[in-house]
């Protein structure tokens, strides 16, 4: 037990370091951006009609003339006190903006996450078990094709097929247009999340499937599967009893590692589907020079991705008898 705690403690320390690094990187990239927040948000024409004082006030609001180091340290100091600041574009606390957006995105990402895991594992196991056969070639070909397809392009293709030609699914947004927020049903939300979730799951699925396939092949070539066969176990029993059990551990790692891909993919996919989620807010904040919001989103996303890895490690300890029994004895 003690060393589990130590293990978790170490992980949290590493997480803090990581978040610091990520926020600094995002800040530096933003500082180096050639986009002038005044030009993009206020507009060239409007700026021309303004007085010097008005412009100076705007410059102060957007923090244009503040030395970068001071600006970053100021932000960091607030964050340590638990204050993520106020979004410059939305004029709301960053936590509130992120909370709202995350609620929309979470549907999408959770659906994509579960779907890519289920699909990836099933296809990977199937391909591995039927190595070299037509099914395997089909699955492998499809996965390779998908993993070399950019997410936004896939989004556009699906949009064309399902929303434009077949007209069976909505082309964008998280809820129907012109409907009172109170009367939006869960069904509406799901209906609007289908296409983006499908696209998003396709970015994570091929990796899971291909890795699971490799592992499955290793397992089926192992001594213990040979022995199971020597003891008269059927192919079905070998697959279910030994195959799934032994691909489960790597599958956990893959499943949680794919969270980062889904976060990354959501930025582009939400853009294509005009889905008001976290990814879209990140794009808006980045292009509009909304530093507090962008840093907030970066830190929250990194924290979620990192928590995913942490959960994977902890789950590993529960599932893997070597760690579990070892820990019990220590």
């Amino acid at each position: 037990m003690k060393h589990r705690l130590l293990f978790t403690g170490k992980k949290f320390f590493r997480m803090a370091l990581l978040l610091l690094g990520v926020s600094l990187a995002a800040f530096l990239l933003m500082s180096a951006s050639p986009l002038d927040p005044l030009q993009t948000n206020v507009g060239q024409a409007a700026l021309g009609t303004m007085s010097q004082e008005q412009i100076a006030r705007l410059e102060e609001y957007w923090g244009v003339n503040e030395p970068p180091l001071r600006r970053y340290l100021g932000w960091l100091g607030d964050v340590i006190r638990g204050d993520l600041g106020v979004s410059l574009l939305y004029r709301q606390p960053v936590t509130q903006v992120i909370g709202q957006r995350l609620q929309n995105s979470l549907w999408l990402m959770a659906a994509a996450w579960v779907l890519s895991g289920l699909l990836g594992l099933t296809l990977g196991v199937l391909a591995g078990a039927r190595r070299g056969r037509a099914v395997d070639k089909l699955i492998r070909g499809w996965c390779l094709l998908l993993s070399s397809t950019p997410a936004f392009w896939l989004a556009l293709v699906l949009l064309m097929i399902f929303a434009v030609w077949l007209k069976v699914l909505p082309s964008g947004l998280a809820v129907p247009i012109g409907v009172d927020a109170a009367s939006v049903t869960l069904g509406d939300r799901l209906y609007h999340a289908v296409l983006p979730a499908l696209t998003l799951s396709m970015t994570g699925m091929p990796g899971i499937a291909l890795h699971t396939r490799e592992k499955m092949i290793d397992v089926l070539e192992s001594d213990y599967v040979l022995f199971a066969r020597a003891r008269g176990e059927s192919n079905r029993s070998i697959l279910l009893r030994h195959g799934l059990r032994n691909v489960a551990l790597p599958a956990i790692t893959l499943q949680f590692a794919v969270i980062s891909e889904i976060f990354g993919g959501s930025v582009l996919v939400e853009q294509v589907f005009s889905y008001p989620g976290l990814g879209q807010a990140a794009v808006t904040a980045g292009l509009g020079g909304d530093l507090p919001l962008l840093l907030g989103i970066t830190v929250v996303s990194a924290a979620i991705v990192f928590s995913g890895n942490l959960i994977a490690d902890l789950l590993y300890g529960v599932v893997d008898p070597k760690i579990r029994r070892g820990a019990a004895r220590a």
Binding site: D223, Y224, F227, A228, R245, D320
Partner: peptide, 10 residues
């Protein structure tokens, strides 16, 4: 069989 590796490790 020849060794322990012939038992399912999990």
């Amino acid at each position: 069989p020849q060794g322990v590796t012939y038992l399912d490790p999990l």
